[in-house]
């Protein structure tokens, strides 16, 4: 199964939405433990009467989707599929707080209705008046990958000519506080651009919304071709991960890998071992210093990979070592979340 990426839009802590997709001047944040998205002026994209009920993640998702559709020149996609690890966390928090504060009485309907994972995909469909296939995957760090596989299957079986696939997750103060108690984040505030060398346990939190317009055929503005999407759950050890990576890449090595290194010394060892063996000699990039850690962060990496293949330029800020002058034609995005959910997406130039 293969699909062409014919449009991309990403809202992230970098200027990926209003500036170019690939960071030229990366946005650095000093003394932070969590990165927040740079949000666009929503009223330029969504009627305020329509957006008034939308929480931040819904606005981000809808806005990114609309820009992605516009870039690809599609008005009514054949399917809308989203992936989100935790869904609309802000609305879920509001709803649960209101249940507690009002002793389960007099609950406002809006946060309840919009606290579901599929709110963004549904909001896009409502706005577009699109009655086509609509689905959402809430599979933690496999959410993006599940959505992509569904999209590729629809294209492959001819059920849709094009598919809008998006992935999004938000960070809220409540979620940060809960996950901080679980030890997910660094104890000390750091500068995000130094994340790779920060050492110690934990990483920095992040968020983002990225949408991809997929189709079975190439257009003049196509970014890249998705060739393979694979997932590996809880590998027994590094040997199983290495063998799985070899299966993913098949006969030819990728010319470049984009890794989910996140500055957590416990789980970054997986990447370090792969760089020494399975990825030996392959130039490696990393991206989580730009967007932070979240369940669907691989969507940011996929956007970067597609942007690199189309623009034939590798952002300096993503490099981990010396690089050849020529941009390779195959890129592997490899990420894992706390060494549990491993995913690999192989993209090629087209």
């Amino acid at each position: 199964m293969e699909a062409y990426i014919n449009g991309i839009s990403a809202i992230s802590p970098q200027n990926t939405f209003s500036g170019g997709l690939l960071p030229i001047e990366p946005v650095g944040y000093s003394g932070i433990r969590s990165l927040k998205c740079i949000e666009p002026k929503y009223s330029d994209f969504i009627d305020p009467m329509v957006s008034r009920r939308m929480s931040r993640i819904i606005r981000m998702g809808v806005c990114a989707a609309l820009k992605c559709l516009s870039e690809a020149g599609i008005r009514n996609p054949g399917a809308i599929i989203t992936g989100t690890g935790l869904g609309c966390v802000e609305d879920t928090g509001k709803f649960l707080n209101s249940v507690y504060e009002n002793e389960e009485k007099l609950l406002n309907p809006t946060p309840f209705i919009q606290s579901t994972h599929n709110t963004v995909a549904a909001s896009i469909a409502l706005l577009l008046k699109c009655n086509n296939y609509n689905s959402t995957y809430g599979h933690r760090a496999f959410s993006l990958e599940s959505a992509l596989i569904d999209g590729l299957m629809l294209l492959n079986e001819g059920s849709a000519e094009n598919v809008l696939v998006g992935a999004l997750d938000e960070m809220t103060p409540e979620l940060f506080s809960i996950t901080d108690r679980l030890g997910f984040w660094k104890r000390q505030a750091i500068d995000n651009l130094t994340l790779g060398n920060s050492g110690g346990r934990g990483t920095i939190a992040g968020e983002g919304a990225a949408f991809f317009m997929l189709a079975g055929s190439r257009t003049e503005t196509s970014y890249a071709k998705i060739c393979s999407i694979r997932m590996l759950y809880r590998p027994s050890g590094i040997d199983e991960t290495k063998s799985w990576i070899r299966e993913v890449t098949g006969n030819g090595n990728p010319g470049l890998v984009i890794l989910g290194i996140n500055g957590d010394e416990k789980t970054d060892t997986v990447y370090e071992q792969l760089i020494e063996e399975a990825f030996a000699g392959i130039p490696a990039l990393y991206y989580k210093h730009l967007c932070g850690e979240y369940d669907t962060s691989a969507a940011f990496a996929l956007a970067m990979a597609a942007g690199i293949l189309r623009e034939k330029r590798i952002p300096e800020i993503m490099k981990t070592g010396r690089f050849p002058d020529v941009v390779p034609s195959r890129i592997l995005v490899y990420n894992h979340l706390r060494n549990t959910d491993h995913s690999a997406i192989l993209v090629e130039s087209c």
Partner: peptide, 13 residues
Amino acid sequence: SIDALELTVLLEK
């Protein structure tokens, strides 16, 4: 209709 529900809750609260 969702606004109607919100206004109903407002009157009660």
